[in-house]
Write a protein that binds this DNA or RNA. Sequence first.
DNA 1: CGCGAGTTTGAGGCTGTTCAAAGAGGGTGG
DNA 2: CCACCCTCTTTGAACAGCCTCAAACTCGCG
Lengths: 232, 232
Amino acid sequence: MAGIDRSLVRALPLFEKLSDLEIDRMLARATLRRVLPGEAVFEQGQKATQFFLLLHGRLKVTQVTADGQQIIVRMVHPGDIFGFAKALQREDYPGTPTAAAESVVICWPTEVWGMFVEQNPHLAVNAMQSIGQRLQEAHTRIREMATEEVERRVAHAVLRLIDQAGKKEATGIRIDFPISRQDIAEMTGTTLHTVSRILSAWEAKGLVKGGRQKLLVRDAAGLQILAEGLTS
Amino acid sequence: MAGIDRSLVRALPLFEKLSDLEIDRMLARATLRRVLPGEAVFEQGQKATQFFLLLHGRLKVTQVTADGQQIIVRMVHPGDIFGFAKALQREDYPGTPTAAAESVVICWPTEVWGMFVEQNPHLAVNAMQSIGQRLQEAHTRIREMATEEVERRVAHAVLRLIDQAGKKEATGIRIDFPISRQDIAEMTGTTLHTVSRILSAWEAKGLVKGGRQKLLVRDAAGLQILAEGLTS
DNA sequence: CGCGAGTTTGAGGCTGTTCAAAGAGGGTGG
DNA sequence: CCACCCTCTTTGAACAGCCTCAAACTCGCG
């Protein structure tokens, strides 16, 4: 409700090439919302009435299959748009975004998207590139799941995580939000047991340091080699 | 070179809400190209100088991994745009589209995309929806690969094929282009051996009728049940 | 008619799952 | 402040689905 400061979003790719005036016009239609860890922004299957931008924090988007199995479709990082069912020609949300850490999201009613785009083609181009990038990531994941063994898939997933949410520490790079073995399993299409075994083995080799919902990568280069499949 | 008739593309989703004049302006910059079966429109890794629309025929887009394994990323059906690296923020093509049947494609130089979009926001919206749909399909495939056993994945793949390229015949629905066991394996992340075994079993049950690079679905409903995983 | 690409089928082994149970970390309430 | 409990994690053992390796078969084209 209260005005959202333009400086919060000015630098985001989505708003590239937009004038301050145009950004302000968009923000005038937006609301801010805080999401606590474990809380969902919306639920899979709900009618899509809003779309969102993650300002701060971290979300994991899950899908539940008919038989109750859950997978993590993707992580949402600050600056990403999500809940963008409009672009997918859908009436309902295909997944559930849950806060992994405390988060702040900007919300717009879906109706305003058409208006915004009419007024500024750049916005559509920027959004398309964002979705295009996600499509590429999805294809990468498909290729990995089709061709790679579990250990390499997990290595790739962890490398992606430190790339997108890595925080340098004295002894390595930490993943900057709480993440469980179960989460990693759901990102790679395996079980928490297998992930646990793999991480234990890596810890023995000095590649990582585990912990309850924590992961510290000691040797990213070593992981990279594993991911490439150049190992024994 | 020679003018491409507007009527060929008028009805396509990509051109929805565009005026005849705008379409003609786009076609003025386009060239037509015929692609013979087995021939590639472009090669993975090449610099992206053009983007394309499939007018007629059928393409399979493959990616080759560093260690030489191949997967089929997706099939391109008439009306689809492809080679759209611009949207993905890429300089090079991420895959290789090969003609499964004789095909005709429309080609545009990548530079003109920006111009077209400036002149007509609808085009960007339409393209985004096309990419959004592909993103959804990719997520579906990821979910299937993560949670389903091979037989169900193959069932889903075949159902998708008859949906996108099915041709009614007296005894069932035929897949309208040459497709090998190897192809189906590369679409589902398995081996041609496993696919062959599964299709043989299905044929014994009367669900399908196989053949060299041919597949006829006799009982789509039965396949659907298999795909849903409601079976024994 | 012969050759080659595509397909079928068998046997064996390995990766990763499933089932089971015990072990830690951290937050909470007494 | 400590003890308890819940959740997450670790680890073992057995099993199974699928892959790998191998070989025969057949369709259709030249």
